[in-house]
Write a protein that binds this DNA or RNA. Sequence first.
RNA 1: GCGCCCGUAGCUCAACGGAUAGAGCACUUGACUACGGAUCAAGAGGUUACAAGUUCGAAUCUUGUCGGGCGCACCA
Length: 552
Amino acid sequence: MTPEELAVVVRGALTDLAERGDMSVAVPDEVHIERPRNRDHGDYATNVALTLAKQAGIPPRELATALAEALAACEGIDSAEIAGPGFVNIRLDDAAQGELARGIVTAGSAYGTGNALAGRTVNVEFISANPTGPLHLGHTRWAAVGDAIARVLAAAGATVAKEFYINDRGVQMDKFGASVMAAAHGQPVPEDGYHGGYILDLAAEIIAAEPAILQLPEEEQLIAFREAAYGLQLRQQQSVLRIFHTEFDVWYSERTLHDSGAVVKGLDKLRGQGHVFELDGATWLRTTDFGDDKDRVLIKADGEYTYFASDTAYYVDKRDRGFDLCVYLLGADHHGYVNRLRAVAACAGDDMDDNVEVLIGQLVKIVRGGEEVKLSKRAGNIVTLEDLVDEVGVDAARYSLIRYPADSPLTLDLEVITQRTSDNPVFYVQYAHARVCSVLRNAEDLGIDWRNSDFDPAQLSHPREGELLGALGQFPRIVASAAELREPHRVARYLEDTATAYHRFYDACRVLPRGDEQLEPEHIARLWLCAATRQVIYNGLTMLGVSAPERM
RNA sequence: GCGCCCGUAGCUCAACGGAUAGAGCACUUGACUACGGAUCAAGAGGUUACAAGUUCGAAUCUUGUCGGGCGCACCA
């Protein structure tokens, strides 16, 4: 029995109480079932009596007592007891709990998915770096977490597109081009240019491919260098993200936004909504109508579009492409954009609480042996996504970034996550998966066909088996809450708990018959439990973009 | 000055208003003729920055104070 099924049972019991008329309780739509931290409190607990008592005018413990009596009589429930101020602690009978293993194995990769967000079409935009250098650690956090958010949203039933906005327009691109050109001529890079060592590499690569570029007139040459370097750098970003297992559905160029007329179209839409005005020769959007602290310029007095104009047009364009929720994942230094972007949605006639969502990721601080490693894209002394992957591997890098909520600052010690030991939780979880796979392989080698043997769920009566089943039953609600809250770290933490439950089970319960033992129903039941565990860990790791190795 | 985020074990961090605030690392002590010990068991470690409030109940919500990070362009 899953917690969701139990909630239905509890709700039914409450309905019975209400209909019998002893107690005038209004039966809530949702009954909160939780898994008590303390195992002495049973398999599950509900606080529903506490929440209903006041409004029903009944002391909580009295209501809880009546509910407990009703529940104890329900099928699949072994006992129900009141505790504390009015909790009802519920213990399932072994068969009802064990049946879960069959359900998970049958559901396969669908176990854990849901339909809470069915019908929502979501655009998740993240990273969106300038194509003027390698991706650094701030980008890397979102590369991992943003991708995981998208996967979790999809698991909750949403239709999701991952999008990368290429900031390939504006003065930063020109500075980038000028920097590469200077390097190509062996001259010092301009003061306000890009100084990383990669600039020299780009220059060398461009000259090698097209030596004649150095003979072009200066202005032409500048453009040629800029475009060549842009192409190379973008491909480098795309390649490293592919290695990182973060695949985008759409790479959207800011230039094409302008070239396609989308910017003009977006402006027209905003004008039609009546929030655009002229002042001092510039064209403004009155974002203060919707909570921004100042109005924003769309077209400067010199006739140039601002970056903000691109932003607004891009939002309108996303909505025109059919997305009903636009999620932006931004770095901490962009938190000033939150109100602005929400106001853009409102100015376009949308609901800024429903159509747009801006998440802010706090900074990642990197230390190496306790000493901070400074990051600076312009200075060149940077830790890049590629560096991190080279040092710790894709799985450890992704997992280390995903297992913490993105909205709190994070310190990673390279010396710690470089170690391929149990210091790093990803190995702990992957090891559990490999261990289950090993047991199932051994079963196969022994010729045990557990899938086609009778499965008696009541065999799973050991406390450690109950713990493991309880953990496995949590998975769907963990995924649902991770999606709802945009917090994939919940899945990672959950997997760690589940891995612990498996290791503890494994430690206490022999799965396979020893050499001279007969195959018993208990062995079969435990193999089903193993198979269910493998499925849950596999589904969870996959949701995080982390591999689930069968051997390590 | 205004605004956003954050203060939880020695360190890095969990805990969607619930019961005795939990993990990992580090520290102490046990369990290997191993279904994979990359594991398990036990111990020690806390005034959840501080103070008031809200309620059956607060690390969580409200207000204030202190401390830290970041942001406040006709830049991109």
